[in-house]
Design a protein around this nucleic acid. Structure first.
Lengths: 153, 153
DNA sequence: ACCAGACTTCAACCTGACTTGAGCTAAGTT
DNA sequence: AACTTAGCTCAAGTCAGGTTGAAGTCTGGT
C-alpha cells in the first residue's frame, strides 16, 4: 500500500494539515504511525477527505459526516453501494435545501410586488420552515400578529 | 407612538431577549430608555427584527445586515423604495445560492450514475466554485490527480 | 554526521451568534 | 409594604470548525 504523509495529503486534498489532524481527532479519518510517531495515511484517505469536503458543501456538519463515514472502510476504496448510499442521501439534502431557498425566493418576489409596507400579509415573515435548514438559534420569522412564546434553543 | 418592552418584542418576534440585546450592541436595532433605564422599542423594530431574521435565512451575516439596515430609519416604517432595494439584493443572493446548490446536485446525480469508484472523473470533486458560498476554510474539493499548494485561509 | 524542512503534541486563540449567570433595579399587583 | 416578574449590566461560557505558536523530534539528502 502506498502511504501519504500529512503534508502530502494536505497538498493533494487542498486541506490544511491542521484541519487534517482536527479531522482525525473527530474520527473522520485515521492514520497509522511510523516508528518515529509520524502519521501515514492510506491513499483511500484522499477520497475520504474529498467526501468530507463535498459533504460540508451539502451542509453536513462534521459530526454527521463522521457518522456517515463510519460505515466506510478507512483503508480501502468505498464500494459502489457505499457511495450510492451516501450520494443519495446528500442529494436529498440538496433537494430540500434547494426547495426551501426557492420558496423563500418566490415569497420575496411577491413582496417586491406588494411593497409590503405592512409586513402583516407578507409570506416572508410567516414561519415556513426554511428555518431549520441553517445553523442554530431561534427559528421563527414572524409578523405583527402571530403570537407565541419565544423559541428557546 | 406605541412602545414595546424587550419582552413584548421578544414574544412577538420570536427572538429571545438576549438576542435582541445582542442585536442592539451590534447596532441592528435601537431603543430609547425609560426613566428606570429599561429599553422601549418603537413598533417599527418588529419589522426590523423580521428583516434581520429573513436576511439571515438568505445567508447574510449580522454585520452585512447592520450595513443594509443602516440605511433604514430606526423608528418608522421603511419606505417602499427601501424595501425594494433590500429585497432585490437578497433575491440576487438567493438566486446565486440556488444555482450553486443546483449545480452541485446535478453533479451528484452524475456521480450516482457513474459509481465514481475512482473519483478522478467526478465533477463533485473538482473545484467548481460552489465553494465560496458557505463559511470559512480551505475552499477546494479535489481528486487524485489535481495538484496545487494547500489553500490557506 | 549534519542540516533543513517536515512532523509531533498541546494549549491557546479566533469568528459568529448567541446564551447563561450573578448581582442588582424597576414595575405592577395585591 | 411586600411580592413577583421583568429588566438591567457585564463577564464568561458555548459550539463549530478550525488556526497559530512554542518547543521539541524525525526523515531524507549530501
Amino acid at each position: 500500500m502506498e502511504w501519504l504523509t500529512i503534508g502530502e495529503l494536505a497538498d493533494r486534498s487542498g486541506v490544511a494539515t491542521s484541519a487534517l489532524r482536527f479531522y482525525e481527532t473527530k474520527g473522520l479519518i485515521a492514520s497509522t504511525r511510523t516508528d518515529g510517531n509520524q502519521r501515514r495515511y492510506p491513499r483511500a484517505t484522499l477520497r475520504r477527505v474529498a467526501l468530507i469536503r463535498a459533504g460540508q458543501e451539502v451542509g453536513l456538519s462534521l459530526a454527521e459526516l463522521a457518522n456517515a463515514l463510519a460505515t466506510l472502510p478507512h483503508d480501502s476504496t468505498p464500494t459502489r453501494a457505499d457511495w450510492e448510499r451516501l450520494s443519495r442521501s446528500w442529494r436529498q439534502r440538496l433537494d430540500s435545501q434547494i426547495s426551501e431557498l426557492t420558496a423563500l425566493r418566490d415569497e420575496l418576489a411577491d413582496c417586491i410586488g406588494c411593497g409590503c409596507l405592512s409586513l402583516r400579509s407578507c409570506a416572508l415573515f410567516n414561519p415556513g420552515d426554511v428555518a431549520s435548514a441553517r445553523g442554530t438559534g431561534p427559528r421563527y420569522l414572524m409578523g405583527d400578529k402571530r403570537e407565541e412564546g419565544r423559541v428557546k434553543t
